[in-house]
Computed example of a mutant assay.
Amino acid sequence: MLFAFLCTDKPGHLNLRMETRPTHLEHLNKLNEAGSLKFAGPFLDDDGKPNGSLVVVDAQDMAAARALAEADPYYLAGLFEKVEVKAWNWTINKPAE
């Protein structure tokens, strides 16, 4: 089942995001290698600077999805003001299985 992580950065925490980015990307690459990560990328503010994240993963259930979200180095560093984990259905432009 697919789950979307809608993550909002705390205001004024761009430096923390940039400092944590290498370990965050390493974490996402491991999820990708395991086949769990479907896609990911930052939300951008009006100046084009990252201010949140969208991550979509394949997980067994909500508990497993939340565990993945809470293992992200950005989450562990306290970057996020809010993280929503929602079940998601890929309907349009879904890659061939």
Rank of each mutant, 00 (worst) to 15 (best):
A87L: 11
V55T: 06
A87T: 07
N89M: 13
D9V: 01
L54E: 01
N32C: 12
K38F: 08
K94H: 02
T20W: 01
V55E: 01
G78Y: 04
E19Q: 14
F5I: 01
N93I: 01
L14W: 03
M1H: 09
A77Y: 05
A67S: 14
F39E: 05
F3W: 09
L44F: 11
L31E: 07
F5E: 05
F39D: 00
F39P: 00
D45S: 08
S36N: 13
G52P: 03
W90M: 04
D46H: 11
I92V: 11
L31V: 02
D47E: 15
H27N: 15
Q60M: 12
V56S: 05
L54F: 09
A77D: 07
I92K: 14
K86I: 08
A40N: 04
E70T: 00
E26I: 01
V56G: 04
D47C: 11
Q60A: 15
L28T: 04
N32A: 15
Y75L: 10
P95S: 09
A34N: 10
P50W: 00
L28V: 05
F43Q: 11
G12Q: 08
K30T: 12
L14M: 10
G35F: 04
S36F: 10
P42F: 04
L6V: 09
D9T: 00
A64Y: 03
R21K: 13
L16R: 11
L16I: 05
D58M: 10
Q60N: 11
L76Y: 03
M18Y: 07
W88I: 00
L14Q: 09
L31Q: 10
L79P: 02
L14R: 14
V55C: 07
G78L: 11
P95I: 03
K38P: 00
A71S: 15
M1W: 05
A77P: 01
P73G: 08
H13I: 02
E26Q: 15
F80T: 03
T91S: 12
T23H: 14
Q60V: 09
L76K: 15
